[in-house]
Simulated scan of single mutants.
Amino acid sequence: MSFVLRAVLVIGALSYFAAQRDAPDAGPRAAAVSPASLWNALPPDLRERAIREAAAEATRQVAGATSSRDTLAAADRRPAWRGVDAP
């Protein structure tokens, strides 16, 4: 029964939003803003700081990718002991 109720709710919501989208007076829509204009709207000191932090994060990720993340000990890599050791 809950599946039917959820399905009716989803179908109803989609139908409502489709009708709102096609309405001529759907209300004001946000103007498309390019990322470049947003970037240029930032103060210069904030832009420089963002660039420095992004470069530092990229450096940390590259350095972390080259370092080993292996957590096994040397004893863990050896095969399991089988049988008697040769004298």
Rank of each mutant, 00 (worst) to 15 (best):
A23H: 14
A56I: 02
W81V: 08
Y16S: 06
V62P: 02
A23T: 07
L42Q: 04
V4Q: 15
D22A: 10
D45Q: 12
R29W: 11
Q61T: 02
R78T: 08
A54H: 06
R52Q: 12
L46P: 01
Y16M: 10
R78N: 09
R60S: 01
L72K: 06
V10I: 05
A23D: 14
A18Y: 05
R69L: 09
D25F: 14
A23K: 12
D45T: 07
P24A: 10
E57S: 04
E48I: 07
S15D: 14
G64K: 07
F17S: 04
G64D: 15
R52I: 07
P24W: 14
P43W: 11
I11V: 15
F17A: 04
L14S: 06
S15K: 13
A31T: 04
V4D: 15
D70I: 00
A58T: 01
A23Y: 13
G27A: 01
A41C: 00
V84C: 09
Q61A: 05
P44K: 05
A23E: 10
F17W: 07
V8W: 12
T66I: 11
S2T: 07
A18P: 00
P28D: 11
A7V: 08
P79R: 03
R77E: 10
V33A: 03
A19G: 12
F3M: 15
A23P: 03
A36L: 15
A18C: 04
A41E: 00
E53N: 14
L14Q: 11
A32D: 09
Q61M: 04
A73V: 10
P35H: 03
G64F: 06
A31S: 04
R21I: 05
A23R: 14
A55R: 13
N40P: 00
T71S: 13
G27E: 00
P35E: 01
L9W: 06
S2P: 08
E53V: 09
S34A: 04
D70R: 01
S37L: 06
P43R: 14
R52F: 12
G64L: 06
G12N: 01
A41P: 00
G83S: 00
D45S: 09
R6M: 11
A19P: 06
S2M: 10
S34N: 02
A36V: 15
D45G: 06
T59F: 12
A65W: 03
T59Y: 13
D76E: 14
A86D: 10
M1C: 07
A63V: 08
A36T: 15
R49P: 02
L5Q: 10
G83T: 00
D85I: 08
